[in-house]
Simulated assay, not measured.
Amino acid sequence: MGEIERPDADPRQLRVSDAERHEVAELLRTAAGDGRIDLQELDERLEATYAAKTYADLLPITSDLPAHRDAARPPAPRPAPASSQITPGGPREQRHLAIMSGLDRSGVWTVPERLTITCFMGGANLDLRQATYAAQEVVITVNAFMGGASIVVGPHTHVVIEGVGIMGGYSGPSGLVDPELDDSSPTVRVRGIAIWGGVSVERKPRPDPRPTRHHRLH
């Protein structure tokens, strides 16, 4: 199961290093030398400092000291760069059922944050190359029973496969082009279960947006 870094995660829950624990310990010793805390408080706070695992554990230890702003400061959350593929306010959730039939999506459309497709002796074809996304990360759940789904993404889309196959499977992303990913790339998580069926993800070039002109020969 693939994992990606979430730029909007709470920075207080990140792990602290030994160097940061030592920095807080030095601040506490300085505070004791200045008379701001007594020796008993120093011992208690030092014990809590070296037991701290996250920034959330360190912050209360120095919150009442003047210099606490210079220690135990978690890194600012890294905002995801704006992407032209993201459409804020798009659909939150959609569900589709394909029973002995098919579902096709291509061209310009918006992928919801949560898209669930159930295929029973049917299939789905999703082309995301010209699509926009309702969020920086969207989840496509495909449950295929004696059916399957084909998902096509462009070079700029990050893909995480988390599906489970039983006499079937999930594959990809394979493709004709190499990925061109950066911090603004939207993420598509593909989940679900495939029984006697399959779900594939393929990476292809974006289609040429220029209209095709047909010339009549005289």
Rank of each mutant, 00 (worst) to 15 (best):
Met146Thr: 04
Gly192Ala: 14
Pro211Cys: 00
Gly163Lys: 06
Gln136Met: 00
Phe120Glu: 07
Lys53Trp: 00
His215Pro: 15
Ile195Ser: 07
Asp70Cys: 01
Leu176Trp: 05
Ala134Phe: 12
Gly168Asp: 01
Leu103Phe: 12
Thr54Gly: 12
Ala32Gln: 04
Ala71Trp: 03
Val16Glu: 02
Arg114Trp: 02
Leu46Pro: 00
Leu59Val: 15
Arg21Glu: 05
Leu181Asn: 11
Val199Lys: 04
Asp178Glu: 14
Arg206Gln: 10
Ser171Thr: 15
Arg189Ser: 10
Lys53Cys: 01
Ile151Phe: 01
Gln136Val: 02
Glu180Pro: 09
Glu23Pro: 01
Glu113Lys: 12
Asp70Tyr: 12
Glu26Ser: 01
Trp196Cys: 08
Val199Ala: 05
Ser101Cys: 00
Leu128Glu: 05
Leu97Cys: 06
Arg210Trp: 02
Ser171Lys: 15
Glu93Lys: 12
Met1Trp: 02
Arg206His: 10
Ser63Ile: 01
Leu27Ile: 08
Thr141Lys: 14
Arg78Asn: 15
Met167Leu: 14
Pro60Leu: 03
Arg6Ser: 06
Gly35Pro: 03
Ala71Arg: 12
Ala134Arg: 15
Lys204Trp: 10
Glu202Pro: 01
Ile4Cys: 11
Pro173Ile: 01
Thr141Val: 10
Val108Phe: 03
Ile166Ala: 14
Gly2Thr: 09
Ser185Arg: 04
His158Met: 13
Gly107Asn: 03
Val188Arg: 07
Arg15Asn: 04
Pro88Ile: 15
Ala32His: 04
Glu162Leu: 10
Val111Gly: 00
His215Cys: 15
Gly197Ile: 12
Thr187His: 08
Pro7Leu: 06
Leu128Ala: 05
Ala56Leu: 12
Pro112Asn: 13
Pro186Asp: 07
Gly122Arg: 00
